[in-house]
Each structure stands twice: as C-alpha cells, then as structure tokens.
C-alpha cells in the first residue's frame, strides 16, 4: 500500500466541492450537509452492476436497459471498463435513424469515475459539473469496478439515513416520556441504589456503570446520561478513595434526576477548600491511578445543575446532585 493510497478520502478539502450544499453561513451545516460528508460513495452506490460488452448491439441494449430499469451501463472488456453507454446515447442513435451497430461505436470512452471511499459530496459535485447521469465507482486499492452511482441512489440513501436517525430519536422520546405517563401518582420517582466498596479500586465505577445503563434504558437523552454518569463516577471514586464504603442512590423523576452519594466517614474538614480546583488530600497510590488531582468535586459541579455537599468529620459525607432532564444543552458551566 502506498502511503498516499492508504487514506480514505485523503483529507480532501471539503470546501472545494460543496457546490449546491454550501449555505449562506458557512459555519453552520444542515443535517443533509453533514451526511454528504459523512457518507462515502460506497454507502450509496449500487453494487449489483449490470454491464455490457463493446460488441453488444444497440438493439440489445434497449432490452437490457428496459429489463433492469436502468439508464446506462459500464461497458466491460476482459475485466476492464472501456466505456459507458447511456440511455442518452441510445436515444441519439435512435434519432439518427442509422442501422444497428455495436455499443463500442456509440459509447463514451473517456469516463469519469469515483473512488469508493470518497465522501458522497464529491460524487454530487462531479455529477453536477459533468452533467453525467451516473459514475462508475472504483475500489482505490484494486482499481476494480465495484459499483455505479446515480443521483437517484444518493437521494435514496440520504432519505433512508434520515429516516433511521429520525426513528431512533422518536423511540428515545417515546420511551422516556412513557414510563412516567404510565405511572399514576401526584409525585412519581423511580429509585435505585447500589453500594460502593471502600478502598477497592478494582471495582470502582461498577455502580456508576450500572446507573448509566439504567438511565439509557429509561430512554433519557444521551447528553443527560453522560453528565449523570460522569458526576456519579467521580463521586464513586471519592467514596472508594477516602472512605470505607457507601451508597449511590439515583431517583429519576419526570423532570430531573437526583443522585445521592452517602458514606459514613471520615468526612471533609473544610468543604470550601475541597471545592477548589486542584485541592486534594489524596495519597500517592490514588494519583498513580490517574485520580486525586483535586478535580473530582469540580467536575461533579460542572456536570450537575445543582449540587449540595454536607459533611461532618468522623460522621460522613452526603453529596446530592440534581440534573435537569430537559436541559440537553452542552454544559459549559465553569468550563
């Protein structure tokens, strides 16, 4: 593999081919624009290629196009593509009233092609620029013809992709709202608890991992789940590092998640100080694990919409975190 060929799309400058997709404000992109960069030609192309040979006659071509409901085919000879014949070529031949002849006399021999791993937007640009109805697709490594792409294929693929994403989002919302709709009560909350073992670093994170999974199953927005998981995980690490153990209790309500992290000691002597970024009393072994840099509580605060910390030395620490379920904006508080 040559170095230049190992890279899909070879870092092509997307701005050069944006054509019809460049909006007035070039820093904002629509979903479709995102998709045409994200999807590759190979995602949209037809892999089932109908081909003809140079010696196929124009009258036979008519039947091939009609039977397969296609508007053109690559012309192959000895495993190599030697041209493309399209319905336009066929109509021109028909209009000229000339006698039947082999395809090779009417086909286009200088064929524009696409590589399978180019972004879809390049194919759109090329179809626009050349006015061709279809482009043969070549595998960059082997140089072989592996598909053919038309505007119709591109539109079909985009619509399909949009439908899938729309559908997934719908299911998310349906499930999230539904569980609470089905429960009758003036105040509804779903509560679940996990215990956390102190000083046992190998299992640290299990409780938060479970919490994350449960919130996902409840269909809560991924952004919210992520914030709850990070906050809970940092709190869990604190319980493991500093205490002999505790519990994490999550209470999911229709509009918010409340996470309580409780332990029975040793407590924080100066809560204000503990909240300062970089302040830590962690021992060396904790730092070696990648924690104990005095960022835990700061991170929790950043993820939470509201946080309460009450601690009594020798008695224990109670941390309460609220996360607003409807606040799906990217959190940048204190960032």
């Amino acid at each position: 593999m040559k170095p230049n060929e190992s890279k899909p799309s070879s870092g092509a400058d997307p701005s050069e081919n944006s054509g019809a997709f460049a909006g007035p404000d070039s820093t904002r992109y629509t979903k479709i624009q995102e998709l045409v960069y994200e999807l590759k030609v190979s995602d949209a192309m037809m892999r089932n290629i109908i081909t003809t040979t140079p010696d196929t006659s124009m009258s036979e071509l008519r039947e091939i196009l009609r039977a397969n409901r296609i508007s053109g085919t690559p012309v192959m000879e000895g495993g190599k593509m030697v041209g493309v014949i399209s319905i336009e070529d066929f109509i021109m031949w028909l209009g000229s009233g000339k006698a039947d002849c082999p395809i090779k006399e009417k086909m286009t021999t200088e064929v524009d092609t696409m590589y399978a791993n180019e972004p879809l937007v390049h194919a759109i640009g090329k179809l626009d620029k050349t006015g061709y109805g279809r482009l043969p697709v070549i595998d960059r490594q082997s140089g072989k013809l592996i598909g053919i792409i038309t505007k119709g294929d591109i539109i079909e693929r985009l619509l399909h992709k949009l439908e899938i994403e729309y559908h997934e989002e719908e299911i998310h919302r349906y499930r999230a709202s539904h569980i609470f709709e089905d429960i009758i009560g003036d105040k509804v909350a779903l509560t679940f608890q996990s215990s956390v073992k102190g000083k046992d670093f190998s299992r640290a994170g299990e409780a938060s991992s479970g919490l994350k999974k449960t919130l996902e199953r409840l269909g809560i927005h991924p952004q919210i789940v992520r914030r709850a998981a990070i906050a809970s995980y940092e709190a869990e690490i604190n319980v493991v590092i500093y205490t002999d153990g505790g519990t994490i209790t999550a209470s999911v309500q229709p509009d918010k998640i409340r996470i309580d992290v409780n332990d029975t000691g040793p407590g924080i002597s100066d809560v204000d100080k503990a909240m300062q970024p970089g302040y830590s009393t962690a021992s060396e072994w904790v730092r070696e694990m990648g924690f104990g840099a005095g960022m835990g509580l700061v991170n929790i605060k950043k993820c939470a919409d509201k946080m309460e910390l009450v601690s009594t030395v020798d008695k224990g620490t109670h941390l309460r975190i609220y996360i607003d379920i409807n606040n799906t904006q990217e959190h940048s508080k204190a960032g």
Binding site: A204, G205, S208, S209, R226, E234, A293, G296, V298, N299
Partner: peptide, 25 residues
C-alpha cells in the same frame, strides 16, 4: 482521568500512559 472526564467529548479517542482498569471505566 479527572481531566479526561472534565474535557473529553463523546466519540473521541483517549491516548494515555495509564493502563489500569479505571481507564476503561
């Protein structure tokens, strides 16, 4: 790891010299 939790975005790669299980968590 606390910096990772504070700043990393979803769908990213983490490059690290730490090898304990907490990295995966």
């Amino acid at each position: 790891m606390s910096d990772v939790l504070a700043f990393i975005k979803a769908d990213s790669l983490l490059l690290t010299g730490l090898t304990n299980p907490q990295v995966v968590r």
